[in-house]
């Protein structure tokens, strides 16, 4: 990257959901250290009940933005933020915000399946376990609901006590989705959920995301343009820590308004 990119104001033409705005990000900037600014004044409103895809080349800040939503970045020393993210009438980065309660409202699915080294059952009910739930009936009910929700129930219902590590990669990722929705969150954050999976498993996850639409607000980071086009309602294109274009997926992919978006989508860089 030789030329210093010129500032482009965000273009905004999103599809509105029926449930209003779930996450309202305004003027959000983030530094990993004094000189390492990762996000520049990002402003973006995530529509509730819809699937929002974050796309952009590597290092553009899309994962950072996603991980800012449930404050997973807090684990990093020297982190600093500016601006605000509003979620359910609360600023996520307000000092009084209860991070643990926040994370319970937002399930997260990671790039690589990360089931815990426990049984399938214990993996799914983990969010309840940490809340101290001991009621067997409630645990079993949650496990069935979450596993059904993640389209895994039929495959594992006879071996719930087996180790989760014995599942295939795709099954493990669906198990992680089940774990993420077990506590009935409002938002699902997905950080490239299919990048470690084969095409068939990817198709199943996409199908699943499609099925979850409407019940959860889904924010998904993806490298796979076709995937964004297939499953998302709105797409945000980011570049070098800035939000360049945010609009309904169809328009972004068929008729992008920004030349840089066009370049990225058509594969001229990336």
């Amino acid at each position: 990257m030789t030329a210093i990119p010129t500032f482009e104001p965000t273009l905004y033409h999103v599809k509105r959901g029926e449930q209003g705005t779930a996450l309202d990000i305004a003027g959000f900037s983030l530094w990993y250290g004094p000189a390492a600014r990762a996000l520049h004044d990002v402003a973006l409103a995530v529509e509730a009940g819809l699937v929002t895809a974050l796309i952009g080349p590597s290092g553009c800040g899309k994962s950072t933005l996603l991980r800012s939503l449930n404050r997973m970045n807090d684990l990093i020393d020297g982190l600093r933020t500016e601006g605000r993210i509003r979620f359910q009438d609360q600023d996520i980065y307000h000092p009084d915000t209860d991070v643990i309660a926040l994370r319970k409202r937002m399930g997260m699915v990671f790039q690589k399946p990360n089931p815990f080294p426990m049984s399938i059952f214990e993996n799914v009910v983990y969010p309840l376990r940490i809340d101290g739930v001991r009621d067997k009936g409630r645990l079993a009910e949650t496990a069935e609901r979450a596993l059904s929700g993640a389209a895994l129930w039929d495959e594992v219902k006879d071996r719930l006590e087996d180790s989760a590590l014995g599942l295939s990669g795709g099954q493990q990722q669906r198990l992680c989705i089940a774990r993420a929705i077990a506590a009935e969150p409002d938002v699902l954050l997905m950080d490239e959920p299919c990048s470690a999976l084969d095409p068939i498993a990817t198709a199943r996850i996409e199908e699943l995301i499609d099925g979850l639409r409407g019940r959860y607000t889904i924010v998904m980071v993806t490298h796979n343009m076709q995937q964004a086009a297939r499953v998302s309602d709105n797409t945000a294109f980011m570049y070098l820590g800035r939000l360049i274009e945010y609009g309904d997926t169809e328009t972004v992919f068929t008729n992008p308004k920004r030349p840089r978006t066009t370049d990225y989508i058509t594969g001229r860089f990336g």
Partner: peptide, 27 residues
Amino acid sequence: VPRSMREGSLACGASQWQTIRRIVLPR
């Protein structure tokens, strides 16, 4: 203990201590 394990647990809303006790220490 892989970072992904800790993150998975924290993302579920577990506190640092719960993560240590239930995920990190057993591993």
